[in-house]
Amino acid sequence: MIKTIVDVQGVRVKIGKKTIVDDVSLRLGRGEAILIAGPNGSGKSTFLKCLAGVILPDRGKVIYPNGTTAKKIRFISDQLSLFENFSVRQAMNFHKRIFGLKQMEYGVFAEAGMDESRKIRHLSTGERTLLNLSLALSQQPDVLLIDEVIHVIDPYLREKFLEAVIDLMDRCLTTVILVNHTFSEVEKIPERVLVMADGRFIVDEQAEELGMRLKKVVSESEISPEIPFIFSQPAGPFIEYFVYPFGPEMSDRFPYEFQAVDLNQIIKAFIGGQYVQKRNP
């Protein structure tokens, strides 16, 4: 029985008149790796910040039933500026002291060959993200929240970043919640995929299952109306249909070829479907 590490209960966040996160409830377990995807402005970042405690929901609660304190939650974002006047070393020492850490991990940082004496103010976004990651890894948190930073780093360091995260997952059973727009590099890591749209989760599935329940059909003409699909788009002379939920019996019943799709396409399909819904309510 996996222990619940985060229990989100009916969280609602409004900014101004707009409801950004709309009555979301969720339970995350220890050691789970979760991916949250969705169209721009769907509330993913805000939701993540709620988990981090950086935004306090207007309604509902975020409970850490396992006693996870702020010391054991880490939030990485490209907006995270730290203290601009600090040098890298000062930031590390500060972090070490505040969080009561025994030692700091310089791994990823050293990998990038960064100079410790530089002021944070002078670091690029990518460099800052790496610094954040180093701080996060040193903290060995129970919960790691990663907010759209993967694509900010160059591909080489990106790989190192992911390796570091995986390391953490294995070593500390860290629950990792990843918010990202691109999935090709990360798609094999999360076990659970959530798609957020308009402040709600429209998809909450195990990654593997998702792969099996969403298939693509490329057809010259309209497919049978009995087949449920969430999105369709023209592709040259053909039309692509993203069938969901797919059942294995469909391959027998219908003459179409149900192709497997990668996570990128899956998410794109869901997002595309959302945009279509918005256009034709």
Partner: peptide, 13 residues
């Protein structure tokens, strides 16, 4: 204005 607020709120205080 410096975005340090975000960081401050992630500290264990």
């Amino acid at each position: 204005s410096q975005n340090a607020l975000l960081y401050l709120l992630t500290l264990p205080y």
